[in-house]
Amino acid sequence: MTSDCDPVDARSIRMERVFAASAQDLWSALTDPARVALWYGGDGFANPHCEMDVRVGGIWSHVMRTPDGTEHSLRFRFTRVEPPHILAWQDAADSSGPLNLVRLEETPGGTLLRFEALFPSSGDREAAEEFGFAFILEQGFARMAGVLGEPENVR
């Protein structure tokens, strides 16, 4: 069999980064719209609009411009806000889209940032509940098609 994709882990992404910055500074960089606009998307991306209501249920409204000049409207809802350690959000309109979770942990040399994106499902009850997304378990995957394959059109 040839597969570069573990079926079990195919629906989640986990990344870790260590920063010298304090958790408080990282939290500010992740939740202050003026600062988020400076880094979101990476090199070559611009963020002409970023508005964040950083509280559970609050909306993150964002316009991102890709290097080719295309603008994309993004609208997320915060689902966990525990400064300066836990921030989680999901597409505001599509509750079957990925759950994004950032955890910040103080380490001796700085701060460990752990990022996780997980596609929810009925088989992930514990994980979803940990994310604070119990309600999405009622939702099917019907609307996932709107996200998959066309991440640039997420609204």
Binding site: L30, G42, F45
Partner: peptide, 22 residues
């Protein structure tokens, strides 16, 4: 999606005045 966040974290590090701290 992974590459999007990889790039974003690169820029976040640069924004924080860190170059490839990880």
């Amino acid at each position: 999606y992974r590459r999007f966040w990889d790039r974003s974290f690169d820029s976040l590090a640069a924004h924080l005045g860190e170059t490839a701290a990880w």
